[in-house]
Design a protein around this nucleic acid. Sequence first.
DNA 1: GCCCAGGCACTCA
DNA 2: TGAGTGCCTGGG
Length: 280
Amino acid sequence: MRYVKYKDGIKMTDFNSFDIGQILECGQCFRFFGKENNYFIIAYGRKLNIIQSDDEIFFTPCSIEDFENIWINYFDLERDYLRIKKILSSSDNILAEAVNLYGGIRILQQDKWECLLSFIISQNNRIPQIKKVIQNISQMFGTEICNDCFAFPTRSQLINADEKKLMDCRTGFRAKYILDAINFDIDLEKLSDFSTADIKQKLMQIKGVGNKVADCTLLFSFGRHEVYPIDVWVKRVSQEIFFDNKNVSIKQIHEFAEKKFGELAGFAQQYLFHYIRNKV
DNA sequence: GCCCAGGCACTCA
DNA sequence: TGAGTGCCTGGG
């Protein structure tokens, strides 16, 4: 991967395993707009345009400093995805097909607070609706970045939120879960020092945070790539290809994924999730 | 009008 | 320890 300053942004070349559409549409994040190879995202208090062609990707507006301090990490650009894909492909035929179709996926490193709340909101909800609710919350509590474009609010910006205001954002029954997360008196950044199991146990003390929400937060913002979040889709596809279509418990799937994929379970999960979602 | 969605809490056996 | 049920909301 190479990158140079180009006009008001960054031009990246010599990359592999990067498809901006796949990265954003694979369900790990919710604040993106656009289609095909032309998107913008809102993350880390910034709005960033991403335009991808066959051999170039433009990030605008973007300074070298922001690219190096935020976006390289956010897009996980220093990780060797070719190696990961090779290992996963050799472990299973269907996974090989998923990797072949969706090899442009990368696991984002998102802001922990935003990620946690986003997945609390995601429960029993559809993606377009999740995006709307997050947008509403950002508009009501977040800082305006540019025209009609708002950063996701920090925890301190949400400290004055009440159930009524959150309900007005269309959060529904999740409003009290969000309040519980706001009042959760543990600094998420400080949790980074703990083991995955310990972080998970802490996160699950928050009302509205169960297995799946905790796992998504761990994978998409704590960089715990050994985690294999299981939602209805991943349960379905896992049962289909690893359990001969038999109905098994989440626990059994977790144990299986841990054994089969180890440190790469999270990557396997993303390829499979995108694969099953786009099948049919 | 009815059903259900990328879960979770709560209840009851 | 596991199964069953209700939940805001909006789109089909």
